[in-house]
């Protein structure tokens, strides 16, 4: 496991990202999230759709400007005081793989040029060298040379996702944000892509932020897992502990809702059924954001917002009653 004295690769401190919506309203997509990521680890991020997972990832990688908070990469704060060259270097080191392998590849470009796009922007390889590198990357992700001259629509979903991975790898990144990289794929193909990501991580010492809503896959690939609810992180710990001993009532409900692919187990299970659905993220009241659906909510919860606290070494939760 990641030891405490190890220096983090990435430090996120009090990150907030608000979007203006309608007349004078704001949507707080990410509300005050802090966490560290260590070199070579995979941090999973889970939570219901709209809870801010993608926004968090996109803000960390500088696709969105943070509303507040700091992002520190290898000890250097990423902000407006960086030179253009330094900024360029950061965008090379951090890459993103997207959910939808159909939408994220330009349909009019050949796979060769899609993969080389980042290399071209960063001026890394040219001519024969460039071609050689693309073929090498195709082979790395389990495709071959003859795929280089094809267009995205000529590939299956799993193959397209491989192209997306090759594109991200092209500029030798250190840190990759995988935003639901397998959600659009068949179960049998999901396992192929997960194996590939793990193999690449080992070979290249990559660090992943792995966003997904399929908790069993997240458990498999992650060292630690963070659970988000309405823009906040509500629990963060190593993946075994999260599954075996969740302390936040929302995490408990989320885990209990996952159907288990075993009919005997499934038929004898007791589920924690959550009442209602996610509240409107624009109109949120004071106090714990989960209070409206929480079976343990009491007055204190509706008045005071629970802070993230360390309930056990390395195990964080934001709940007044978590012990």
């Amino acid at each position: 496991m990641m030891s405490a004295e190890k220096k983090p690769l990435l430090e996120v401190k009090h990150l907030k990202k608000y979007f203006p919506v309608g007349k004078n309203q704001t949507l707080k997509a990410v509300r005050d999230i802090s966490l560290n990521l260590y070199k070579g680890e995979t941090l999973g991020l889970v939570g219901e759709s709209g809870c801010g997972k993608s926004t968090f990832g996109r803000t960390v990688i500088q696709l969105y400007e943070p509303t507040e908070g700091t992002i520190i990469y290898e000890g250097r704060e990423i902000n407006n005081s960086l030179s253009k060259a330094e900024r360029h270097e950061f965008t090379r080191k951090m890459q993103m793989i997207f959910q939808d392998p159909y939408a994220s590849l330009n349909p009019r470009m050949k796979v060769m040029d899609i993969i080389a796009e980042g290399m071209d922007a960063h001026g890394v390889y040219k001519g024969q060298e460039r071609k050689k590198k693309v073929i090498e990357l195709l082979e790395t992700v389990g495709l071959s040379e003859e795929h280089a001259n094809r267009f995205p629509h000529e590939f299956s979903g799993g193959q397209r996702q491989r192209v997306g991975i090759a594109r991200a790898l092209a500029v030798d990144p250190e840190f990759i944000i995988c935003d639901e990289p397998i959600s659009a794929l068949d179960v049998s193909i999901q396992a192929q892509v997960i194996n590939l990501l793990k193999e690449l991580q080992k070979k290249r010492d990559l660090t992943y932020l792995f966003i997904a809503h399929d908790l069993s896959m997240v458990k498999h690939i992650s060292d630690r897992i963070g659970v988000m609810y309405l823009g906040s992180m509500v629990e963060l710990t190593d993946s075994e502990t999260l599954f075996d001993d969740p302390v936040h009532p929302y995490t408990q409900a989320l885990l209990s809702a996952i159907p288990i692919p075993d009919p005997d187990v499934e038929k004898s299970r007791n589920r924690i059924m959550l009442e209602g659905s996610l509240p409107d993220p624009i109109r949120l009241s004071e106090g714990c954001l989960f209070a409206g659906r929480c079976p343990y909510a009491e007055d204190l919860c509706r008045k005071n917002t629970p802070e993230m606290k360390e309930v056990r070494p390395g195990h964080f939760a934001a709940c007044h009653k978590a012990k």
Partner: peptide, 24 residues
Amino acid sequence: KGLLASIPKASDKGSDLTAIPGTP
């Protein structure tokens, strides 16, 4: 069998998942 095997299980942690190679 392949479909059932490709679901991650606790015992798969740290090792490869059993994927079905190829495409339909």
